[in-house]
């Protein structure tokens, strides 16, 4: 709904004489913080033993350097139900990996990161995800009747609250298309989401062409993670435009035990994942 409303507004602005341009703006500089990207995604039908956690730090907003990776931290995940501990090894490039992770549905897991003598923790429960029921292409749906789009459908289980994270990544592009989904209006139905690119010369966006490849990921999300994604995606898509909510300081589920004010960014998620690839014909 919100998405449609935004399109309505932006199209309206486009119809009018409005114009956009890139400008230089002085922005404030906040503190540098640790970013924890701990995404333990268990792909359906695999053992899920290979897992990677990424650590980096934040940078000033207009800094275009590569992200500063964090080394020398100790990272471990504990299965709170079984007591099993999984150590993630420092690869020296910001990646911390393990090949012994054991995913179990409904079990709760805890993350512990120790970096510069400060201990960060988070807890999350592993939830299953429904399968993708179909992936098709079409032209007549979406904003542009002539542009190609890819449609992904899945069957929402009835009578339970489900949250999803859907991610499209075209291999020709740098930026993904992200969806946060709640089954509030679609409970028990088959739901379809589409990704279409409309041509924009200013931003060098081109429509999909036959042969283009899109990677598709569907994840289950906890309610907390859904709330987090909602803020994250909305801010990523349109922070500062007059018809979106005031952007806010976004904090994930990781807390700093030793110095609560030095909150880390990022999120610890443990989810089931369905992955697929679609090539336009």
């Amino acid at each position: 709904m919100k998405l449609y409303y935004k399109i309505l507004i932006s199209t309206f602005l486009a119809v009018n004489t409005s114009c956009t341009d890139v400008v230089e703006v002085d922005v404030p500089e906040g503190p540098i913080r640790l970013t924890i990207e701990a995404s333990l995604d268990w792909e359906k039908g695999t053992a899920g033993n290979e897992q990677t956690i990424l650590l980096s730090t934040s940078t000033p907003f207009f800094d275009s350097q590569a992200k500063p990776s964090v080394t020398g931290a100790s990272v471990q995940v504990t299965n709170n139900s079984s007591g099993a501990v999984f150590n993630f090894e420092d690869q020296g490039n910001g990646q911390y990996t393990t090949s012994s992770f054991v995913p179990v549905f409904g079990n709760s897991y805890s993350l512990e990161v120790v970096y510069q003598n400060e201990r960060y923790t988070a807890t999350e429960t592993l939830l299953p995800v429904t399968d993708i029921s179909s992936i098709t292409q079409s032209r007549e749906d979406g904003d542009d009747d002539e542009a190609l789009e890819v449609n992904v459908s899945f069957q929402d289980p009835a009578d339970i609250e489900n949250y999803y994270f859907l991610r499209f990544q075209s291999r020709n592009d740098l930026l993904p298309e992200l969806f946060y989904i709640k089954d509030e209006f679609i409970d028990g139905n088959e739901a379809t989401f589409l990704y279409e690119k409309t041509e924009d010369e200013e931003d060098n966006i081109e429509e999909f062409q036959p042969g283009d490849v899109v990677d598709i990921i569907l994840l289950s999300a906890s309610e907390d993670y859904y709330n987090y994604l909602q803020l994250l995606i909305e801010q990523f898509e349109g922070a500062g435009d007059p018809f979106s909510a005031t952007p806010v300081a976004l904090v994930g589920n990781c807390i700093n035990i030793d110095n609560p004010d030095n909150v880390p960014y990022g999120y610890f998620r443990v989810t089931e994942k369905v992955e697929s690839t679609y090539t336009f014909e």
Binding site: V27, T246, L250
Partner: peptide, 24 residues
Amino acid sequence: VTYPNGQYQYEGISIASYSDRNAD
């Protein structure tokens, strides 16, 4: 308005961090 005061990487994208509401 509220301007960003930093950025970090998550899900392969740059996420802006924000400070006080309506401070800019």
